[in-house]
Amino acid sequence: MSIFVDDDTRVVVQGITGGEGKFHAGQMIEYGTNVVAGAVPGKGGQAVDGVPVYDTVDEAVEAEDADASVIFVPPAFAADAVFEALDTDLDLAVAITEGIPTQDMAKVNKRLGETDTRLLGPNCPGIITPGEAKLGILPGNIFSEGNVGLVSRSGTLTYQVVDNLTERGIGQTTAIGIGGDPIIGTSFVDALEAFEADDETDAVVMCGEIGGEDEEQAATFIGEHMDTPVTGFIAGRTAPPGKRMGHAGAIVSGSGTGTAQSKIDALNDAGVPVGDTPEDVADHVESFL
């Protein structure tokens, strides 16, 4: 089992003719993902690596029965691309783009509440169910099939933690990057809920970071609703207040809300051990299995 994506997922790549879209569509296909279509306005009728391109997502869905989209569209046009995905009623839209203006995302978020489509991201590395499918830019070769679910706000931190797990021979059911922006689709709680419902996920790692209150809400959810053991990592303990630490969402407010400590305390209170190092996180996972 896995969550959100598997080898039946049929993917349309929005922005497949751009540099990033083309490269990563190729990588996804190589990994074994069913990339069935591309969607780029004005490029309908072309093909990229044998994948047919359509002018609209709607046409791609109609012709190729796509049920998920991956979005590689520059920031200025990305919100529009997400709207297009949401309005086509796909099951899943994965927005890789970093740098979408927050006010655009507020409008997207409003629409999100009116559809059944799940949005992952933006500003995320995507999602991978090892051995079945990857939607996004995660390097497939570092992941392996296993029984640990992973959800993270950061791409490279995910790779680091996966590497520490791999050294111990521990693989993943599904790994999800939810994105580093202040307003995102799928939250920690959404991902944790899905992992809790998944029979094959025996332990979960959540990698959070400073900013917002998603981790605190996740802690409450874990305390009240989860039997599957969870361990956490929180990046940004040394971040000064008021400074954006790379991710648009990674900022401790002037009064000190959104700090690493508040998140670590909330997780600890919910019985979730938080590692001081990625190595510690792997130790905790090992102790759960």
Binding site: S154, L157, Q160, I210, A235, G236, M245, G246, H247, A250
Partner: peptide
């Protein structure tokens, strides 16, 4: 990557 750089700090 923001998360990994923060972690390094």
């Amino acid at each position: 990557g923001a998360g990994l750089v923060m972690t390094t700090l």
